[in-house]
Design a protein around this nucleic acid. Structure first.
Length: 445
DNA sequence: GCCCAACCTCAG
DNA sequence: TGAGGTTGGG
């Protein structure tokens, strides 16, 4: 790859097995990252960065690119901070900002959690997971901002990623001033010169801004539907309760130190936050890694492959009791990081990948497995590749059935008595394996 | 404690 | 017509 392409970027050694930006940033956890192609579609090798990803924080825009073994990053600041209107900034300022950005990345991507070890752990416990792991490497949970996460997931009810993304973006552009304008990356090897344009970046609006009574009508007009009132009222509740944005933020971050149940109880007080949305928030910004948010899709898979009550293919009303059954079952199988495993299996199984012009993970492994349990009609001369894939899927299904029928040592513990189940669970508990990314990993490109 | 219709909008 | 759901009334 050319050096000029990454001028101004710092490099952090990081294998794809630990983080795949393309998967993580567009799988339905975060809705505010933008993806910008660096080459005309279909002209690059996977070893080189294909896109630049951008995300606007309160004071800077973080820009990322990824190659097979390296994460490249830089941040862009408004002119006022760039020394245009004051003294020229020193190289020391640059250094300080880069360290701050690196600190943000390590926290946001939770880089001290060793994802490869977790994948191995889940694979050993769950043949179904093992069957799909290779197609979704580097999928990890983000550690996001609580306020942004709450609003984003209030928007998520009865909704899809594409529309949620539009809503969250429009929330930012309408209620938060532009922080800085940046031109899109030059597309290397493009035949026409067009494509380079300035884009304004807006941070996510703080609670005090969305708490204003006029906001709900405005949100209605922006197409938020019944979620408009939920967002305004939730913002209002938080500001009324805690006074200022700073205090709200402090209190929200404090939820990370509470037990899962206590934190969930607090979240359920907000309007527009039910059990499912609360669990998404717990998992995606409050460090509750064992929580598995249950929607109808998860329930379908849980019925089919993990022996949860109900008839696969048909739908049962998602009562609190059924919700707990699904949640407990999956948490038992996947352990302390069950919510992370869930994200690999479920948030990855979304067609919406294609709507961002990113490489599609299809055919969806989940769908593929689902279809293969049905008697497959004799296919006229399947390609050798397809043939192998189906064999593999059926092999995995056989293993899955072994698990479900108790033949495996990883059989479900929920049928054991409480004491024994606890001891089994304890023995199975994985110690979070940490692979600290140290400051010495930081190198100048 | 459990059930169910209504709710915005858009894609299939 | 229903979706990766929640609310409010019975």
């Amino acid at each position: 790859m050319s050096c000029t392409m990454l001028k101004g970027f710092k490099a952090l050694p990081l294998p794809m097995s630990q983080l795949s930006l393309a998967a993580v940033l567009k799988c339905g956890q975060s809705f505010r990252w933008t993806a910008h192609p660096l080459y005309p579609a279909g002209t690059t090798s996977i070893a080189e960065p294909t896109h630049e990803y951008r995300y606007c924080l309160r004071d800077r825009v973080v820009c990322l690119r990824q190659s097979a073994d390296t994460l490249f990053y830089r941040s862009v600041y408004p002119d006022i901070l760039n020394g245009i209107s004051s003294a020229p900034e020193s190289s020391g300022d640059h250094e300080k900002r880069d360290l701050e950005t690196l600190a943000f990345l390590r926290d946001y991507f939770q880089l001290d959690i060793d994802l490869a070890t977790l994948y191995d752990y889940w694979s050993n416990r769950d043949p179904v997971f093992k069957g799909v792991r290779d197609r979704f490497t580097g999928l990890r949970m983000l550690r996001q901002d609580p306020w942004e996460t709450i609003v984003s997931f209030i928007c998520s009810s009865n909704n899809n990623i594409s529309r949620i993304t539009k809503m969250v973006q429009s929330l930012s552009t309408h209620f938060s001033p532009a922080l800085v304008s940046i031109s899109t990356p030059t597309i290397q090897g493009a035949t026409d010169v067009e494509g380079e344009e300035d884009i304004s970046y807006h941070a996510f609006p703080p609670p005090s801004v969305l708490a204003a009574p006029s906001v709900s009508a405005k949100l209605r007009s922006l197409g938020f539907g019944y979620r408009a009132e939920y967002i305004q009222r939730t913002a209002e509740m938080l500001i009324d309760e805690h006074g200022s944005d700073r205090e709200v933020q402090k209190w929200l971050l404090g939820l990370r130190n509470m037990s899962t149940d206590d934190a969930r109880t607090e979240l359920l007080k907000f309007v527009g936050v039910g059990r499912k949305v609360a669990d998404c928030i717990l998992l995606m910004c409050l460090d509750k890694r064992e929580v598995v948010p249950v929607d109808t899709h998860v329930h379908q898979i849980a019925m089919k492959y993990y022996g949860v009550r109900g008839k696969a293919g048909t739908k049962l009303p998602m009562t609190p009791k059924l919700y707990d059954e699904v949640n407990d079952k999956l948490a038992n199988i996947w352990g302390d990081f069950a919510g992370w495993a869930h994200s690999v299996l479920f948030t990855a199984d979304l067609r919406s990948f294609s709507s961002f012009g990113l490489p599609s993970p299809s055919p969806s492994p989940i769908k593929e497995i689902r279809e293969s349990t049905v008697k497959l009609p004799p296919t006229p001369s399947p390609s050798p590749r397809k043939r192998m894939r189906r064999d593999r899927v059926e092999d995995n299904l056989q293993k899955a059935e072994n698990v479900l029928s108790g033949l495996s040592e990883f059989a479900d513990v929920s049928t054991l008595d409480g004491d024994m189940a606890d001891r089994v669970k304890k023995r199975r508990r994985v110690a979070a394996i940490r692979r600290p990314v140290t400051m010495s990993d930081l190198s100048e490109w």
